[in-house]
């Protein structure tokens, strides 16, 4: 079995977990939720194995490098970080409804990596610009940050759903966590994301300085990561202003995550020189 096959299986495992979390929430059943937790754990373990295997395979090919060097690998890692952070959140707060909104994101990420015809899962040798120890630090921190933002995004969606309330006879919204809890959790995820995004931008800057002598050159990818950072800094400060709670913070968190997505995918549509997507 090679890493691509293993990761394809992991894709469906995440899909199954997401499905069970949603079933558990919609039909108010405990059992599917419990199974979903175990399936998510299996998916994360498989995901870890897939990444490790790919790392080993790259060495067998004689072009050994950490599997964080292209779109496919970063999406697989993104799914992994979402899975891990979500499991920690679930264990900490003993709440499974968030799973119905978080695990689909992990699933989408890895499914997009595995299934999109535009994304090659071939292990490729590193181009000269990527041959640096900063690669791992930079990509890993960025994606841990992105994953925390992704979960904050999911939680913010729950918040906005829940606070609408009107005319809900199914009790679906009642089963979602309390608004106050969701608001705090969004903030907590955003702080984790902000710390890691900060470290990610900084390691990127240090890397740029060691590779071509300028720590900042306003290339589109850099600029969009800074825009993302400004948006979340806005969110952190807006929380201190009266009148900016709950709903507005949830909107900011959603806008922030859209900026994350644009930094990740959209920037490739713009003219620029960042080495990969």
């Amino acid at each position: 079995m090679n890493s691509s096959n293993l990761l394809s299986i992991v894709t469906f495992t995440y899909g199954l977990a997401a499905f069970l979390y949603i079933v558990s929430w919609v039909f108010k059943k405990q059992l599917p939720g419990k199974i979903a937790t175990w399936i998510t754990i299996i998916a994360v373990v498989g995901n870890t194995g897939g990444i490790a295997l790919r790392w080993i395979e790259s060495y067998r090919l004689g072009i050994g490098h950490a599997p964080l060097s292209n779109m496919y690998e970063s999406l697989v890692f993104f799914a992994w970080t979402i899975g891990v952070i979500y499991l920690v959140v679930e264990q900490t707060y003993k709440n499974r409804t968030i799973g119905a909104f978080a695990t689909p994101l992990a699933f989408i990420s890895i499914a997009y990596a595995s299934l999109s015809p535009n994304i090659s899962d071939r292990i490729q040798p590193l181009i000269p610009a990527l041959k640096s120890n900063w690669l791992i630090a930079h990509v890993a921190t960025c994606f841990i940050g992105y994953a925390a933002f992704a979960i904050a995004f999911g939680v913010s969606l729950i918040y906005l759903l829940k606070q609408r309330k009107t005319g809900d006879k199914t009790g679906l919204l009642d089963r979602l966590p309390e608004l106050g809890f969701l608001d705090e959790l969004t903030h907590q995820m955003v702080t984790i994301g902000f710390l890691f995004l900060t470290v990610g931008i900084i390691t990127g800057a240090v890397w740029a300085n060691s590779a071509w002598g300028t720590y900042w050159s306003w290339d589109p990818k850099e600029t969009w990561s800074l825009i993302t950072w400004f948006i979340y800094a806005t969110l952190l400060h807006a929380r201190m202003m009266r009148g900016w709670e709950g709903k507005k913070i949830a909107y900011l968190s959603i806008i922030g995550f859209l900026a994350v997505m644009f930094t990740y995918f959209g920037v490739n549509l713009l003219p620029g020189l960042h080495s990969y997507g």
Binding site: W218, P220, T223, W224, L226, I227, F230, I231, A233, T234, H237, A238, M240, M241, W244, A259, V267, L270, P271, G272
Partner: peptide
């Protein structure tokens, strides 16, 4: 005031985007 901070940070977020759409 933190209100000014929010205004400035958002302005920076919005305006920084211009230079990524219009080549510099």
């Amino acid at each position: 005031s933190v209100r000014l901070t929010v205004v400035i940070l958002l302005s920076l977020a919005v305006t920084s985007g211009i230079g990524t759409i219009i080549p510099q």
